[in-house]
Simulated assay, not measured.
Amino acid sequence: MKIVNHRLVKDDGTPYPFRDTPNRGLKGNKNAPVKHRWLVMHYTAGGSASESIDWLANPEAGASAHIVIGKDGRITQMVPFNIRSWHAGESEWKGVKFLNGHSIGIELDGFGFLGNAGPGKWKFKGQSIPDSEVVVATHKFGKPKGGWPRYPQKQLDVALELAALLVKTYGLEDVIGHDDISPGRKQDPGPAFDMAGFRAAAMAGGAAPVVTPTPPPADGTAPATARFRVKTTLNVRSGPGASNPTVAGSPLAAGTFVRAGREQDGWRQVTTEGGVSGWASAQFLEPAPAALFTVSTSLNIRGGPSAGDAPVPGSPLPAGTIVEGLQDQGDWKRVAVQGAANGRSGIVGWVAARFLQPSVIPVSGIGQPAET
């Protein structure tokens, strides 16, 4: 897919379906532009994609989105990407209020919170939902606790591809949830959506694999698919226990980065960036630090990976600024400034990689005996 004149088209140039909505822009100016800073993820809380699209095209809805993605991965655009859609409502992020004017909105077709009916009793407006399609979890803000529909893999894959394209095309600063910008008022996209993993993959250009997430447990005590670093030479096994055989690619070297999901009896299900997958003893994993760098000199941070791209607000970065590496492209690196620079926070853009010095964080516990 690609974007042409703020409309989404397929690689062969065929436009994706477009359903116009009056719920856009500002009063008196339906073409009021949007400032491209963030991408906000939602769920529709509707019975189907077509039902939600019809509603968002209705003036009585008073709401819309730039994109609706069905459970089958089908995309419908409703507002061009350069025009405000009414997806955020009352909201605030990083000191900015009413994010309709500062963000792009994607709606994922989904039922939303299902309440506390329990196994075998999950329903949405009378429609029964199999237990296999429901996750029982607590929202990250502590409530509600109950059933949340799983997002189909096809829907997640399409959403990630589009999110990465939007981030790259418009230089978006971050990918966030509706619940992040309207805490207490909104719950979407909810705990069945791996917001942290999705954000990381989208900001990295879609390079990281996206899987149907294993959500947090119902008590909300542990994140899904967190990133860890191996503390010592470590065997990866076919199951959660030392009696299980090792898998191809085992053992992992100290310092290897892994994505860890489900935990069972002191073991974590892990996948390396090289594709080695299995179970590892959790005691030999530690939370991975971000890929941090220090700016070695006053440095322009730009909207794209070339000296011809305009500097972004907050540029130039003072020497000594700490940044997190997000994406590499040739001799350039896309970075997020940690904290504030020049009085601005949330700065994201491209810098010449030769002016960055690694901020080294040593692996702890090197030299411990390997798990056997």
Rank of each mutant, 00 (worst) to 15 (best):
L299V: 05
V230A: 13
P191A: 04
S250G: 13
Q329I: 07
V258F: 03
P316H: 02
K10A: 12
A226K: 01
H6P: 03
P318H: 06
V210M: 10
G365H: 07
S64R: 01
K143N: 09
G346N: 08
P191M: 01
G220Y: 02
L299M: 11
F355L: 15
V136E: 08
L165A: 03
T212F: 01
L172E: 02
L356K: 10
L108R: 02
K71R: 10
T372Q: 10
V312I: 09
R262L: 06
F228Y: 12
A282E: 04
K30E: 10
K186M: 09
F293E: 03
D11I: 14
A291K: 10
E273S: 14
F124L: 05
I181N: 01
A370V: 06
V236R: 02
G62V: 07
P80E: 08
E133G: 10
G105L: 03
S64F: 04
V9K: 04
A353W: 10
A242E: 13
Y43L: 15
L56E: 02
V210H: 00
L172S: 00
G304L: 02
P144H: 05
V211L: 06
N5D: 13
V360D: 09
G105R: 01
T21L: 05
I104T: 02
G308P: 04
F18L: 14
E60K: 12
I104P: 00
A280D: 05
Q368R: 13
P80Y: 08
V135W: 12
I347Y: 07
G28D: 15
L56G: 01
G47F: 03
P313G: 13
I366N: 15
G70Y: 06
A310L: 15
G110K: 00
P22S: 12
A88M: 03
L156G: 00
H42F: 15
P149D: 03
R227Q: 06
E173V: 02
P209G: 11
V337H: 14
P33D: 04
P59M: 11
G239Y: 01
I106E: 01
W55M: 07
W350H: 05
V68G: 01
I322K: 06
Y170C: 02
E133P: 06
V210A: 01
G303M: 07
A57I: 15
E133Q: 14
L326R: 05
N29I: 03
S298T: 14
R150E: 08
K97C: 02
L252G: 04
V134R: 07
E60G: 11
E60H: 13
P213N: 12
A340Y: 14
V158K: 07
M1I: 12
W93M: 09
T138K: 15
A192S: 14
I322N: 12
G239P: 07
V136F: 13
E90D: 11
A117I: 08
T212E: 08
A208M: 09
V323R: 03
G325R: 05
K71P: 02
G314F: 06
S103Y: 02
K2P: 02
A63V: 13
L8Y: 03
K2I: 13
F293C: 03
A32Y: 05
L234P: 00
E90Q: 06
V276Y: 15
A242L: 09
N58R: 14
F193H: 04
T321A: 07
G206F: 06
P22L: 11
T169N: 05
N23A: 14
T321Q: 05
A307M: 12
R262D: 04
L26M: 11
G278W: 10
R237G: 11
